[in-house]
Design a protein around this nucleic acid. Structure first.
Length: 911
RNA sequence: GCGGGCUUAGCUCAGCCGGUUAGAGCGUCUGGUUUACACCCAGAAGGCCGGGGGUUCGAGUCCCUCAGCCCGCACCA
């Protein structure tokens, strides 16, 4: 049956079809094995994108990397399981729906909690799948039957169980502390959800009069509006300037209150005036100070950061309006002593960029130290390995300075905290099942906590919850710990660190499948973490909506094809280095795909021609053939097999270490450089199917050609799954040995399969390239074949036509000595000359030779020096010395040759 | 303040455990429709590997230092 491919590679024509096929056929479904698995496991979780998300380059990089590894491991014979899902993303999703309501003139509050949450679910059903649909289109080889959502019933039950258990263990507490508060979202935030920005601000110095009228104490502040909540002024106990005022009372300006001057060594005398106002309700440090000195707290702002009744005349003003007014009033009263320029770092809400207000409020916290201790041990003891390694350091840095985790959020969308407040006795009941009455006093007047949990609480449980924890499921027994997590550094603390803490904490209590006690090494959620880089634009700028330099992966994919974009990301994904994404590069890899496409067309043409001559390729035995050609096979056959095997071995080794860029470049180099540029061109001469030709040669050549090609497709498959799937199916013309190339075996390869063939071939290649260069120098027209002379080397007879054809020479004759007056080149293995009447540019040639000679002499001197150095001979490895010796031998030959050539051209007279 | 990273060809980047002549893609220049491919083929030019010092038989690679750029973390009002 003739195989036909359109002339040009058109990715859009094939990709949708295969993407749909892979999902429809459930090719990547991985059930949990019923007995102990015989193959190694390869399990990984998709970092769950927000349901509100649209796919961006970061997702695409992440998915490309995981997919390459998963497809590779699967083809290597592992039980490969990649689990997809989405995160409910509390604040982000709530904001999205609120914005939608806003366009309808509605508000969340107007709707009420229940209706609002219903509305969010509705939104989720409608739009929440978008990002996963995009993922399907990109060919991610995930098990769709295991898709999760962090608010699914099962995962919600796990969340509740985890919360209750931590509470029972005394690791969850509730209390009034200063937290980061977003006045727009009107919720508490964890430290991680606050992003700090350096900003030019002011430091105001304000005079607080002594109550006895004996003068002032001048305080310095960046937040004058909070002064209305001041309860003291603090100075360093040994600060001589203030020794006299310690313990005295001050009159707080703009109010009728009097506050004391207290002494605390936390105050640094160098900063500002050395006197600091103390506002426990609006600053974390002041809060601590207040606790130490048993001071009251006065909250002067409401949830929206407007001044409240306690702010007296300023009540109702927004915090910044209040600041302005207060400064004006102080100025008027002559109490503003100075205004200084001051840069400080301002905390903003990660989601909405509103300036965060430290606020005293009652929240739920996790006592994190015990969890952190174990999480540190897990990495220290090597149970979890980070790549690149430096991230382990970052991880430790954070873990060792960790603060308790504020897990309550004043939102409606999320996992509601399983705690019930008793209106009668105000006891709080925390239970797994919704209680009917207060566990303390039995009153039925109980109400569930209105707060929900931080989104990262549920995603932090994913490695256990996706497998059915707290139940002791088969999945959990088999698949936990997972092998690998691939993610970006931006969620190292948010997510990776939390999974390690929560995973270790809960799983250490769960016995191993055989009933033995679980050790830390088996309690970790994953054994390896690979942190990938950031995708930037072509100018290395961070992509951002405000800059307008966001590259939409879908748009790029439409223009260049998924395979080309995947390959670009892989080829640029050197661990630890950000990716400057450039379209030119992607265009280059589409060209690569097109190159393979056309090589395939050539191949099919040959198969058809052979078939017409009655020669058939045995497709069934193909995969076995690429490995090991016969000893008496032609050089190019042995060479391409050796090259393929070496490439495959190196690709496997590179993937083992997450060196995606090396793996990709190796395949690229092999396919384009070795296979297309050399092998196909050589083979063209052997593929003679005419009756008078040697049919055995033709058949064997064709078989090797097809076998190597088929194996190379498999090698490329994890990187370019669509193209390879299409061509592989086409090769087998509708009768493939498997449902997908993704289910075939990955070539493992062997290094040094045939070094002799590689060595011989590289001399031949050098010869051809050298002659081409000579032809060019002599200005020989491209079409014209000219004679050449060769000494010190004998071309194998069967390759003579190949050299003639590829070097474009009419005849290449072995000679004793190259004739005088011809243009020649010498290498370590041969001297070759092209005979052509056209005069060469003698001056240019002399210059080239002079440069060449200088280079060779320098290198020779260098080699000489090393080889006469006793220390070198004593300490350097034998292979290095041997290599240098043989190179020195070559140089000893080349230098006189080059000198002779210079002589020959009479260069001295042409300078 | 603490921690980390980067600086190699015009551009974007590779260069693993230190080892013979530092690579790729793009761009540039020259010449080309040859049994698939102009999304192609052939050839070429282009590098004191940021500066300085050290360790070593040997340094782009290891150490120190300086300069420039970037990124995390942090309660200094």
């Amino acid at each position: 049956m003739p195989r036909e491919l359109p002339k040009a590679y058109e990715p859009s024509a094939i990709e949708d079809r295969w993407a749909e096929y892979w999902v429809r056929e459930e090719l990547f479904h991985q059930a949990s094995p019923s007995s102990a698995p015989i193959a190694p496991l390869f399990t990984t979780l998709l970092p769950p994108p927000n349901v509100t998300g649209r796919l961006h380059m970061g997702h695409m990089l992440n998915q490309t990397e995981i997919d390459i590894l998963t497809r590779w491991r699967r083809m290597c014979g592992d039980l490969a399981l990649w689990i997809p899902g989405t995160d409910h993303a509390g604040i982000a999703t709530q904001m999205m729906v609120e914005r939608q309501l806003d366009t309808e003139g509605k508000t969340r509050q107007g709707l009420g909690r229940e209706a609002f949450v219903a509305r969010v679910w509705e939104w989720k059903q409608h739009y929440g799948g978008a990002i996963l649909d995009q993922m399907k289109r990109l060919g991610a080889s995930v098990d769709w039957s295991r898709e999760y959502f962090t608010m699914d019933a099962g995962l919600s039950a796990a969340v509740r169980e985890a919360f209750v258990r931590l509470h029972e263990q005394g690791l969850i507490y509730r209390g009034a502390y200063i937290v980061n508060w977003c006045p727009r979202c009107q919720t508490a935030l964890s430290d991680l959800e606050v992003v700090h920005e350096e900003q030019a601000g002011k430091l105001w110095e304000i005079r607080y009069p002594l109550a006895d009228g004996s003068g002032f104490v001048t305080v310095a502040t960046t937040r004058p509006e909070t002064m209305l909540g001041d309860v003291a002024v603090a100075v360093h106990p040994e600060d001589e300037r203030y020794l006299g005022v310690q313990g005295k009372m001050l009159r707080l300006p703009l109010t009728v209150r009097e506050i004391p001057v207290i002494a605390d060594s936390w105050v640094s005398p160098e900063f500002g005036t050395g006197a600091v106002k103390v506002t426990p309700a609006h600053d974390p440090n002041d809060f601590n100070l207040g606790q130490r000195h048993h001071l009251p707290s006065i909250t002067v702002m409401d949830e929206a950061a407007r001044m409240n009744a306690a702010a007296g005349a300023y009540a109702g003003l927004d915090r910044f309006a209040a600041r302005k007014r207060i400064l004006e009033d102080l100025e008027t009263q002559g109490l503003l002593a100075a205004v200084r320029e001051h840069t400080n770092s301002i905390g903003k809400c990660d989601r909405c960029k509103t300036i965060v207000e430290p606020r005293l409020s009652t929240q739920w916290f996790i006592r994190i130290q015990p969890l952190a201790d174990r999480a540190i041990a897990a990495v220290e003891e090597g149970h979890i390995r980070f790549t690149p390694e430096q991230y382990a350091k970052t991880y430790f840095e954070w873990m060792r300075n960790i603060h308790d985790w504020c897990i309550s959020r004043q939102l409606w969308w999320g996992h509601r905290i399983p705690a019930w407040h008793c209106r009668t006795c105000s006891h709080i009941t925390v239970t797994r099942e919704t209680p009917a009455a207060c566990e303390e006093c039995g009153s039925s007047a109980i109400e569930q906590e209105t707060d929900v949990l931080d989104t990262w609480f549920s995603s932090g449980l994913l490695p256990i919850s996706v497998f059915g924890w707290p139940a002791a499921t088969r999945d959990l027994a088999v698949f936990y710990p997972t092998q690998l997590l691939v993610t970006g550094f931006d969620i190292l603390f948010f997510w990776v660190a939390r999974m390690i803490m929560l995973g270790c904490h809960f799983m250490i209590d769960m016995p191993m499948p055989d009933g033995s006690t679980r050790e830390l090494k088996d309690a970790v959620p994953f054994r390896e973490v690979y942190i990938h880089a950031l995708v930037r634009d072509a100018d290395r700028q961070k992509m951002s909506k405000t800059k307008g330099n966001v590259i939409d992966p879908i748009e790029i994919v439409q223009r260049f094809g998924t395979d080309a974009v995947r390959f670009t990301l892989a080829a640029m994904a050197s661990p630890g280095t950000d990716i400057a994404f450039s379209e030119e590069r992607t265009a280059g890899y589409r060209a690569f795909a097109n190159k393979i496409w056309n090589a395939t067309r050539f191949l099919f043409l040959q198969i058809d021609r052979a078939a017409e001559a009655g020669i058939a390729v045995d497709l069934e035995s193909l995969p076995a053939l690429a490995a090991c050609p016969a000893d008496d096979a032609p050089l190019e056959t042995r060479w391409i097999s050796a090259r393929f095997n070496a490439t495959a071995a190196e690709v496997n080794a590179a993937l083992e270490d997450y060196r995606f860029h090396e793996a990709a470049n190796l395949v690229y180099q092999f396919f384009w450089g070795d296979f297309c540029d050399w092998y196909l061109e050589i083979v063209k001469l052997r593929l003679d199917f005419s009756p008078e030709a040697n049919r055995k040669t033709a058949r064997e050549t064709l078989t090797t050609l097809v076998a190597v090609f088929e194996a190379a497709l498999r090698l490329l498959s994890p990187f370019m799954p669509f193209l390879t799937e299409e061509l592989w199916h086409a090769l087998y013309s509708g009768k493939p040995p498997a449902k997908s190339i993704a289910l075939t075996r990955y070539p493992q390869g062997v290094q040094h399969l045939d070094d002799a063939a590689e060595g011989d071939m590289s001399v031949l290649q050098e010869l051809i390239v050298t002659v081409r260069g000579l032809r060019k120098d002599l200005g020989v027209e491209e079409k014209l074949a000219v004679p050449a002379q060769l000494s010190r080397y004998r071309i194998p007879d069967d390759l003579r036509p190949v050299v003639q054809r590829l070097a474009r020479v009419s005849e290449i004759n072995p000679v004793e000595r190259i004739a005088e007056g011809t243009s020649s080149r010498s290498t370590a293995f041969f001297d070759v000359a092209v005979v052509y009447e056209r005069k060469i540019d003698v001056a240019a040639e002399c210059e080239r030779l002079a440069k060449e000679l200088a280079r060779l002499e320098k290198e020779a001197a260098n080699a000489e020096r090393q080889l006469s150095n006793g220390e070198f001979l004593k300490k350097a490895p034998a292979a290095v010395i041997e290599g240098l010796r043989s190179r020195a031998g070559e140089l000893g030959l080349l230098i006189p040759k080059t000198r002779a050539a210079i002589e020959n051209l009479n260069c001295g007279n042409h300078q």
